[in-house]
Each structure stands twice: as C-alpha cells, then as structure tokens.
Nucleic acid binder design. Structure first.
Lengths: 271, 271
DNA sequence: TCAAAAGTGTTGAATGTACACCCATGG
DNA sequence: CCATGGGTGTACATTCAACACTTTTGA
C-alpha cells in the first residue's frame, strides 16, 4: 500500500455521535441535575440528560453547549469538562451510537424554555433520580416520589458524573464552580455538604478553605443584611488555563488543583 | 413504548472513530510507552500510538485490543481503562476524526511482530518522547537521542495518559498492574519510583504497601537466589469488578481504591 | 564473617478534629 | 442585651518522615 489518498477512511467505520450533558447544581441544600423530558421517539416521554447529535463541522464542546442552549434556553456559566465516552453497542435501540458525556458544574440558573427535542426541562434532586447504591440491598424508596427512569444508559452516565464530582471536590477547586460570582465560605461549605451528603464543621472548614492557596480570592467586601456577623465575600481564584495544543476539545480553563486536599470524612450516615 | 423508527439518525451526523492506546510499562527503572512506526500515509514513518478505526459492530474495548494485537502481536495482561476522547476537529489531515484513547498499564511484555499498518513496534522511554514540561523553559534536551515527534495529537494523548497514571498511583491499586503475577514490595516500589521520578524510602514504603487493605495478597512464598534476605511474594489483591450495566464499554475489573492514599512527595528534583 | 537486601521500632514534626471562645451584626 | 452566624485559639489524636536497628540470605 503505497500512497493513501487524503480522504477519510471507509464510510463503514463511521458512527453517529451524540453528546450528553450532566448538568449539576446545588439548590436547597441538595445536588440537582438538569433533565429534559424527551419529545421525540426513542424513549419519548422519559427523562433524559440534555444532549443530541454532533453536527458536521462541529466540535464536541460546541455541540454540548448548543444542545444545552436548545433544550434549556440558556448558556450557563460554570465549569464544563469531558466525563467519558459510552457505547457504541447496546445503548440505543436505533443502533450503534457513540455518546461523549460532559459534566457541567454550575451555580443554579433558571431554565428558560423547553426547546426543540425536549418537552420540558427542569432540575431534579439527584437522590430522587438515582437509586442509592448502598449495600443495603433495597432501592431506598424516596418519600413517595415515583422513581423516574432515565432514557438510554443515562442513569449510569449520571452516576459517573456524580461520582466524578464527589471526588474532584477533594483535590480541586471544582466546588467554587457551583457558587455565584461572589460567595461566602458558608456558601462553599454548603456545596461540599450537599455533594458529599455530610455535615462539616464550619470553623474548621473556614480555616481550611481560606488557607488553601489557589481556591479563594478576597473581594474585600462582606455580606450585609442577614442576621449574625457579616461574612467575607470571595471570588473563585483564577482558573488555571491549560495550554491548548492542536486538539479539538478541552484546552479551556481547568479548576486548579488544591493541596493539601480537603478530605471527605470517612463515610458516616448523614443522620 | 409505542413505535420506534429503528433507523439511525441522519448520516450527516456520523463520524469516523478511532481508538488509540497508551500502553505503558516499567522497564529498566523507566516508564516506557509502546509506539509504532506508521506504515501508511498520514504521518507515514512517524511514531504513533497503536490504534486504528473502530469496525462496524465492534465495541470500543474490542477495537482497542484488536488494534493492539494487530500492530504488536500480543494481547497483553494488564489494566485497560478509557482515558478520554479527542477531536473531531483539527487533529487529522484527512478530516474530522473522533478518537477514543485508552490507557493500558501492563507488566513488560515483548513485542512479537510488526503488523498491518505498523512498520515496527517498540517500547520507548516516555522521557525521550515527551518534552519535559518543567517550568525551566527549555525542552530539557535528552542525552543525544533525537526527540521523536509523534503523529496526530498523540503527544498530548500520551501526556494525558502519563498524568492519569501518576495520579492514579496515589489513590488506587493501579501500580500492581505494572507488576508480574507475583512480585515483591520492592518491585512495586520501583514502579512508583519510575512513574513519579522520585526515590521512596524502602522501609516506609514497605509498611505502607503491606498495611494498605485491598492492595496486596500474600502468596506465602518468597524469592530465592538473589543476594540479601529473600522477599515475600505478593499477588495483586482481587480487582474490584464494577457491576456492568447496559453499556457498551467498561464494566470490567477496576483497580480498587486504596485508603489512605500513598501520597506522592512534594515535587523535588530527581537529583 | 561480611555485604546486601528485607523488614520492624521509634521519635519528632505536621496535620486533622473537636470544641471553647471571641467578634460583629440585627432585632 | 440577646440571638445568630462568622471567625480564631488550642489541645488531643493520628499520621508522616527519617533513620537506627534487627533479620535472613549468599559469598
């Protein structure tokens, strides 16, 4: 085989590719995920992660943000990173489809509209959507809320996204991505508590957070109006920007690694 | 579910998909990567990660192991996990191509043959292939060995694989995947030293490794023939098998998490 | 008996955790 | 002045890092 024409390889090797977004936020002291109700046929009416097919000439991150905008009406702030890739076999009734999943950690934003392929979009507590995988055996029936079943393999993708989020809180500044532009140490602590499902000592957490280089940036301002002593307001320390090489993805800002890590306490029941 | 058109979506959304494998091992106290010399045109003659196009009806892991076998002649033991996905834009001169990269951590195995699309396959020290990204500025000229340039965006994929390996050594049993079936604590320590590029205290490492649950399994046997006191032989503790859901990939054995983590010492120059 | 490698004991430093205590504000 | 939440000081337990020392082999 001497010369290879500068064309793409045999079309037989091509696969339809989708992106799916695990968009997480913390609201009402609970970790919540953005889900849509599918308006089109495979799994029509079921809950699903926002996502859709990558268009020709489009990059993966572009596709992820476009689908999010189309199905929820917003282009939110927050940190977007690739989660992993699923498929192509045995995950879509239509045939082999590859799906690249993304994780979005964002402060709470309102869902503006239901878009093209989605009948409705709304935040749902992760605990209501995912069966608890405790060794307890049972599915830990929520309080009356019908267990929603997710389309495709989205339950597993969501579980992977939640697990990634939990572990990245320990050793990166990802937690600040869930907070608004300016936030207090208590805001950040509530993020940790909601994601890990534990209670943290406010005094030790404060020392740890303010003493960790690369995590917080002082604004000099404080809260006002609330009860109790005003709290100092911080911004997220400037994200580390990874030098983008010749790549079709990533290369964007990445939450800084924090050292020493904020270790998650030994798993103890939330009550 | 009423009726589902069992057709795949518009063909325009399809992309050629490749898998690339970052196969790492530790030999001669150095982290080494398996590279092939490309025999076909895009980047013909250049070094590249083994890999190739996913075939119709094939899963990603199947494609990765097949390409490895075709280009190196072996189906090695070791731990295979997905790294991340690259593309599809601006990474292949032939046009948009999506690449799903896999990481293989394996004990040293001989390269049997040069296969179909590869003119040669051989282990190369990572330090000779990747420019050191130290803040020193310079490219840290190796000792005379010409800096090999990798095809496509494989330098970045390799860098990501090496970084993943370095960090997973801290909190998982991945290090044992680089060792043979039975190995000593010193063997395992040399893996850590090679991957991290540091020296570790043999006495403290021994205590830490043998005292970490889920890492080592005693065989009751010891080495013989060498100089000095014989060392106890261990096997890797049984890998944790993740319950495979309805997914086209993964679900295989995963190295156990180890706790407390074996922390990498603060970066100090290897000398 | 010596060299070499494996493995154990011990000690001071650093870190994490629990909690007493002080600070600043609104009512 | 009291309730409420923010923030600091401090003491105990645990862990880590360095290294003296013992054990077990081959030469």
């Amino acid at each position: 085989m001497s010369r290879v024409p500068p064309t793409v390889p045999p079309a037989a090797a091509s696969l339809p590719v989708t992106v799916d977004v695990v968009a997480l936020t913390v609201r009402d002291d609970a970790l919540q995920v953005l889900l849509v109700e599918r308006a089109v046929e495979p799994f029509r009416g079921a809950l699903a992660l926002p996502g859709g097919f990558v268009l020709p000439g489009e990059g993966l991150v572009d596709a992820a943000t476009r689908e999010l905008a189309e199905e929820t009406g917003v282009t939110p702030p927050g940190h977007l990173e690739q989660l992993r890739t699923y498929g192509p076999l045995d995950r879509d009734p239509r045939g082999p489809v590859l799906s690249v999943a993304y994780l979005l950690a964002a402060p709470h934003f309102g869902v503006v509209e239901a878009g093209s392929d989605a009948a409705a979009a709304a935040w749902r507590p992760v605990a209501e959507v995912l069966p608890r995988k405790s060794a307890d055996g049972g599915v830990g029936s929520g309080q009356g809320a019908a267990r929603a079943v997710l389309a495709f393999d989205h339950a597993r993708i969501l579980a992977d996204g939640v697990e990634r989020t939990r572990s990245k809180l320990e050793y990166s500044a990802l937690g600040t991505a869930f907070c608004a532009d300016e936030f207090t140490v208590t805001d950040l602590r509530r993020v940790y508590e909601a994601v890990w499902g534990v209670r943290l000592d406010p005094r030790n957490f404060s020392r740890k957070a303010t003493g960790t280089p690369g995590l917080l940036e002082e604004t000099g301002r404080t809260t006002a109006g609330g009860t109790g002593r005003p709290a100092a307001l911080y911004r997220a320390a400037r994200p580390v920007v990874r030098p983008a090489g010749a790549l079709g993805d990533g290369g964007g800002p990445v939450p800084a690694l924090i050292d020493p890590p904020l270790l998650r306490p030994a798993a103890r029941p939330p009550e």
